[in-house]
Structures are given as C-alpha cells and as structure tokens.
Nucleic acid binder design. Structure first.
Length: 554
RNA sequence: UGACCCAUGGUGUAACGGUAGCACUACAGAUUUUGGUUCUGUCUGUUAAGGUUCGAAUCCUUAUGGGUCAACCA
C-alpha cells in the first residue's frame, strides 16, 4: 500500500532537521526582518512563508523585526502596512521587535569592540574611505587613523554620540584587515553620524549602526537560531560570524537562499517606488503591482499566494519563475470558492420572439460547492449576450450562436437564431431567436443537445457596473534586463476600463470579501472605489481560454 | 583579471553513490448546461571533458556559462 507521500525537504529544512536531531537545538527561532521603507511584495512573501512556515512545521517561533537603522528612509506608515500584510497572509509573529529597540545595547557592543582594540574612529571622508577600500582585485590600504589609542577612540566615539560632529565627519570602523580578499572585511563601517529624526527613537540618537552591526546583533539578542536571508548576503556571513566571535554573543547562523524572480514584473523596492512616484500606477496598492497590497486589491487570496510560495520552493540557484504559476494558484483556489454570476461586457441585443412575459430562474452559485446554494435570475424575451458569441459566418467548430444554429442560454432555454437585424454599416443591432419551451434547465425534455452555452443578462433588470481588466505591467519577461531602462518595457495595455457593462441584479449585493466568477469571463472582486450607485470590479485573473488561444494561433 | 555562490525538460523543484520523479506550461483525447472545472495520455532534462567507482545528476579535477562583491543603503 502506498504510504502517505513524503514531501521532500528544502535545504534549509534539512539543516533544521539535522540540528534538531543532533540536539543542537530543541526548538528553533526565525525572524522576518523587513526594513520599513516600502511595501511588501511577492519576494517578501516567499521569505515570510519560509520563515513562518518553518516554525509551523518545527517547534519554535518567528519574530517580526523591523530593521530600522536608517532614519532617512523609514516611516511608521510602512511599519503599519507591513504588519497588515503579514497578518493578511495568515501569519502570527511571536514578538514585534525593532533594531532600534537595541540601540543602547548596540552602542555598548561598539564600546566593547573599541576596548578590545577592534574598532576605531576614522576621520576620513567617504571618498578617502572608498579609496582605502581598494578593489576586488587589489588590496586596500590602512586609514591614517587606524592606530589611534583606545582612550582616544573611546573619547571620540562618545563625542560622536553627543552630537559634537556634523554628518559624515567621522565613522566608527571595525579593525580587521584592509588586505582581506573579502571587501566586507576591509575595516567595515560600523556607525555613521546622521543628525536625522528617527520614526521611533526621535532625536535621541545622531549616530546609527550600519546593517552589519545591527542585523546579526539583533539576531543574537533575540537568540535567532536560523537567520535566513538572500544570496547577496553571502559575503556578509564572514563579518556576521566575526562579530559574533569578537563580541562573544549568541551564535546565530546565517543561511542564504536565492531570491525568487518572477517574469513580466519587477520586485525591487526601488523600482516599485519609482512606478509610484512617476505615477505609472495609482499607488503601492494598484492592482497591477506585485505588492501584497496590490495583489490583495486585485482579488488574490492569501491562500493562493502561500500555495504559490510553497510550489516555487527554496533553493540557491538563480531562477525566473513563470507568473503563470501564480495565476494557476489563484484560479485553483477561486474556482473552489468564487460565486458564479453572469455579466455581459460587450452587449448585443437578443430577442426571443416566441416568449412572453418574465420568469425568475433558479441557478447554482457554484457548481464546485453545493453548499454555496443557489439564487434567482430574471429571464425575459429581451436579453444581452456578448457580441462575440454571435457570428454570421462562423468558422468550423464554432459552438456559439449563428444563423440557424442552436445554443443553450445558461440556466434557461435552448434557442435558435432565426434572423439578424443590421444597420446601414452592417453592424448587428439585434439577433432574433425562437426557443424550445420544453428545454428549460432542470426540466429539459426536449432531447436536444447543443455544444454551446452562453451567459446572458435580461435587459430590463440589468445592472450597470464598471469593470477593470488588468494585464501584466511589463511587456517583456525580464524588465530588469540591463539593455534598457525598465520603464521602457511598461505595457501600455496593462489597464482596460469598461465603464458600463451589464450585470445580473444579484451583483448589487456584492461585498469586498466575496470573490466572483463572471461566467466565461474570469474572476472578479469588488474594488474599494465602489460607491452604492457605482459598483467597480477588478478582474483578478481570466479563465483559461483554450478556444481563444486556439483561434489566435491560426 | 581576484574571491565567493550557483548549474537537472520551456519554467520551478526533487532524487543525499543504486529505476532521473513531481508540479506548472504546451499538445492530444474523454466528460461537461462555463470552449471553465474534472479525468486520461503525450512531448521535452542531468552544461562539457576527464577522473574515482561494480555503479555518478550526486564525489574529485578542469573548462564553460550565469550571478555576487569596491553605498557613511538594507
């Protein structure tokens, strides 16, 4: 008998299982450490799902830590949005922490290093420091201030803290090795002077620790067992470990995985910010943005994003994930939960000449989920159907309406096209049909089978709503390709607004928490721009359309 | 002219010296009151050359290709 399938572990899970089995740890602690200088995006989702997922799978917990060591770029508004996004994705952090919580401790660590002769105050200018650094292929040179006495360093560092020097006048540097092959080990800057207001500590400080003197130390303070980051931090690991050793603090370990790249989009805070500031999108939560808030507004479900992160996995090699997988994940979830509704985007009038009056027909809300129940839809002899559901001269295998051809109207009757009314330009104005009275859905005794089923809306009860259709933001797979500025690859057709389409009346009660499938059209969600008299729907993703892809190929 | 990281179908990811598997995509077919869903099937892969071994995607060497490193950013 087949055992329950054993899911293979990613390399970080393997490390953790080894650590747990060897007794190195009884439980683990991870952290998600965003800098509050922008909104979270799909790349962060991967890290969130990894870090939080690990402590759901293994004993332990995950902290949310804001890496707020640069007051120039960070804001409380970003902190709030990050918390909202992590929660929305479905994760709960054990402790909410800030690197700025540790500024006193970090300062004490720096003093400790000075006392051990492992750090010094440098008066060099940024240009001089850059020169001293050397290049990856040539060794660096010592700063003339490298051999100051411990007393002088202590005095200068205190005065730096006391605000006696202007921005950039001095730095605190680790005293390691200017000849080191790893550039990061060439006396890295630990503290810089910045007379700036911090979103949490206000004006208490005018010196701020650099990433390398804050991140690992915060990990140690929180006793993070597995500090997971992306591959570009690999060279930092040596410095991370050096500081642990010299400071004699808790030995957190850093592990790196490759950042997930997704085609037809960008996931870099800098580029996303540029899209916002240059008004190429309406904001961080524009439904075309790969931000969590954008995806949320677009109608993505937290579950579908988690599923996506799970499927793309974690590894160390460069990658370019197909955005089609994200779309697959959301379709899969929405198919199970979305309420079906009928909406006609590009209407043409259809009259059933041998039908009188009106009736309300019963139809299921979701064929995948009987528990979703059913609703009533109004039917009459004057309807709207999609213009492209009719062709006067249909190609082969066209299952829709054509002169003399029969189709079923979803949840209603089978009809046959008898006559087409056109204007002087030859544009179809009205399609006249007759119906099979005994073909009513649920009680069909006609014995007739048809290949096509069309969605429709009764003209008299039709609701007018706005629909916004989104396409990928960029028209090339890799907009970050250096051969041109990424802005040049923006897809001019990324947004299509249909200000007035015709919807069945049940949609008037739509709420933002519901998801809809407009039958044969795609998945939609109510946008917050809606007002009582003016409903706006965002298309989350279209339905798979094998007919359209087959016909476009010809 | 250096150091470090990485290399499995079109894409993502497994195989831990012993049958190259899974998913997405694509393409067929069946079912279907959504050309959706579901079901079945098909195509496509270990960067290269040496070496170790009874046996190599896996270990070693070299080459090739991609990426990272010279912010008082994170």
């Amino acid at each position: 008998m087949a055992m329950s399938e054993e899911k293979s572990l990613n390399f970080i899970e393997e490390i953790i299982e080894n650590d747990l089995q060897s007794g190195k740890y009884d439980s683990i602690v991870t952290r998600f450490p965003p800098e509050p200088n922008g909104y979270l995006h799909l790349g962060h989702a991967s890290s969130i799902c990894l870090n939080f997922g690990l402590t759901q799978k293994y004993p332990g917990y995950t902290n949310l830590r804001f890496d707020d060591t640069n007051p120039a770029t960070e804001e409380t508004a970003y902190v709030e949005s990050i918390k909202e996004d992590v929660s929305w994705l479905g994760f709960t952090w054990k402790n909410e922490r800030y690197a700025s919580d540790y500024f006193d401790q970090l300062y004490a660590f720096a003093v400790q290093l000075i006392q051990k002769g492992l750090a010094y105050v440098d008066d060099s200018t940024p240009e001089e420091i850059a020169l001293q650094k050397g290049t990856p292929t040539t060794p660096g040179t010592d700063s003339p201030y490298r051999n100051r006495s411990i007393e002088e360093n202590l005095d200068l560092f205190t005065r730096m803290r006391n605000g006696e020097f202007p921005d950039g006048a001095r730095t605190l540097r680790a005293r390691i090795d200017m000849q080191h092959v790893n550039m990061l080990m060439r006396d890295p800057i630990l503290y810089r002077i910045k007379h700036a207001h911090h979103h949490r500590t206000g004006d208490t400080w005018c010196i701020y620790p650099m990433y390398d003197f804050a991140h690992g130390q915060s990990d140690a303070i929180e006793q993070i067992t597995h500090s997971i980051c992306t591959m570009e931090f690999v060279p930092h690991r040596e410095l991370y470990d050096w500081l642990i050793k010299q400071l004699e603090i808790y030995a957190s370990r850093q592990y790196e995985f490759a950042r997930r790249n997704i085609n037809y989009t960008v996931t870099s805070k800098r580029k996303l910010l540029q899209l916002v500031t240059e008004k190429k999108v309406t904001g961080w939560d524009d439904p075309r943005m790969p931000t969590i808030s954008g995806l949320r507004r677009r109608g993505y479900t937290p579950h579908s994003i988690r599923e996506f992160c799970d499927r793309i996995g974690i590894a160390k090699r460069d990658n370019m994930v197909d955005v089609g997988l994200l779309e697959f994940c959301v379709r899969e979830h929405l198919n199970q939960m979305a309420l079906r509704r009928m909406v006609v985007f590009d209407p043409v009038k259809l009259v059933i000449t041998d039908y009188q009056g009106e009736e309300w027909l019963n139809t299921e809300n979701n064929p995948e989920d009987p528990a979703a129940g059913s609703r009533q839809i109004p039917f009459s002899n004057t309807l709207y159907i999609e213009r492209d559901d009719f062709m006067e001269q249909p190609p082969k295998k066209y299952f829709r309406l054509a002169p003399g051809q029969m189709v079923r109207l979803k949840s209603a009757y089978i009809i046959r096209c008898d006559e087409v009314i056109k204007d002087e330009q030859g544009v179809v104005q009205e399609i006249r049909c007759s119906h099979l009275p005994n073909s009513k859905s649920g009680s069909d005794t006609s014995g007739v089978t048809v290949k096509g089923t069309l969605h429709w809306v009764s003209v008299k009860q039709a609701l007018s709503v706005e629909v916004r259709l989104y396409d990928r933001l960029f028209s090339v797979e890799d907009p970050t390709d250096e051969s041109a500025d990424f802005m040049q690859y923006l897809n001019p057709q990324s947004l299509t607004v249909l200000p007035a389409v015709y919807a069945e009346p049940a949609l008037s009660e739509a709420t933002e928490s519901e998801r809809f499938q407009f039958i044969r059209k795609g998945y939609f969600v109510l946008d917050r721009d809606s007002s009582p008299g003016r409903l706006v729907f965002n298309r989350t993703v279209g339905l798979k359309d094998t007919w359209a892809s087959a016909t476009s190929k010809k």
